[in-house]
Design a protein around this nucleic acid. Structure first.
Lengths: 221, 221
DNA sequence: TTGTCGACTTTTGTATACATAAATATACTT
DNA sequence: AAGTATATTTATGTATACAAAAGTCGACAA
């Protein structure tokens, strides 16, 4: 048993939320889930607390955990913050990226062109790109914050559809950002990254509005 | 029992760290603490996990929890991030603060002038100021991030000394920031807040270097 | 004297048992 | 028939018991 049961429970719940098996607003009973996974409540509780920290579930006092609901406002706030954080990450990366960092980023860019027709692979590479860029910024707290709020976005479901529609654009933007970082142009790197996040936000908002039913009436207010 | 034992344990540990009763690097045994507080290990574990999330303790696998040690580098990274986050908060506040928000901020400014000779009160008002400003930015995730990373700074001990030395300056800077927000000048509000954080960072770094022994040899590297 | 092997002790991870509070359903009264 | 009160059930919060793993101390051998 290399990984603790609590971590597995966390992973299972995380995946269930990302896959849409657990829908926002749905209640998660500790006992129920423990039985489903065949383990006791203790690691489940630990997992739920981590999920609450990541914003994926809300812990109503005495009433257990619910999968969090993201209002349209909350989504906007989340993207506002991503723009700030990842924009700053790009700036820092431009100022201090090592040759190694750049190599990693370029390797990801190449793989993106190679897998241009595989939405799932692109989604994974996209995640890797943003992670690698954060690490190039060389600020552990910044990385941690970006990771947390990216996790929160799992609530909105997979981005594979958006990746398919926007694959080319997105990759071009990635390349431009890495280029600016390589040249040490902090101003341009930040500006490009902010624009990149804004584009992603627009697509996301459009998707959410189109679904329409993905958001409960009360959470639109 | 209005607040859970886990919350009380969290508060107790938090306070112990802030007061310096638990020094960085010191190990925290679950059993020991449970005995000290007269409760079982379960709520202790919950509290330790929250503390780990706040960066106040590190959970070495299989080796329990230690009070986190902040290297000089980590402190710099923390202030870099505060500059980004609170600078953005000031910008957003300038763009969207309500009359109510401004009233709250001004009320705090007045109290600061009234308690100019009480370092403890000033430290509390300073915290309130930054909180109120974050809330004026009207972004729940931004507020959450600022709160988290401010908590991490508890590791460095109280700022009352710095408050005493810098009381006048700091208050003047607060006033200038609120003024810019009141005028809706986002650019100036962000710029002033960033400078404010940079000043606080300088003082803090100076304090840490002066203490010298507050940081373990290995963590300076 | 030093190094290594082994038993012991301590600590975390997990399971389970118990108490308390909330939600629900049922029965009784008006 | 409807509303209220009470009992039952179910959920969480906490405690404790148990198991496995890691560190520690000691003994024995070279």
């Amino acid at each position: 048993m290399t990984e603790s049961l609590a971590e597995r429970a966390y992973g299972a719940l995380c995946a269930a939320i990302a896959e849409g098996e657990l829908t926002p607003g749905q209640r998660i009973g500790e006992t129920t889930f423990a039985a489903q996974l065949g383990i006791s409540r203790t690691p489940i509780r630990e997992a739920l607390q981590r999920l609450a920290r990541d914003g994926l579930v809300t812990l109503d006092a005495r009433n257990g955990a619910k999968v969090a609901e993201l209002s349209l406002e909350a989504i906007q706030e989340l993207y506002d913050l991503r723009e700030i954080l990842e924009g700053s990450a790009a700036r820092f990366a431009a100022l201090g990226a090592t040759a190694n960092d750049l190599q990693r980023l370029n390797a990801i860019l190449i793989k993106e062109t190679e897998h241009g027709d595989d939405p799932a692979a692109l989604a994974k590479l996209n995640k890797l790109f943003h992670q690698a860029l954060c690490e190039a910024a060389n600020n552990r707290y910044l990385s941690s914050a970006v990771a947390t709020f990216s996790t929160t976005l799992l609530l909105l479901g997979p981005t594979t559809l958006a990746a398919k529609l926007r694959a080319g654009e997105s990759q071009a933007e990635h390349r431009a950002i890495v280029e600016a970082i390589g040249e040490g142009d902090a101003e341009r790197a930040e500006s490009l990254m902010r624009a990149h996040i804004r584009r992603a936000r627009e697509i996301r908002i459009a998707m959410v509005l189109e679904e329409g039913l993905g958001i409960s009436p009360t959470s639109i207010a």
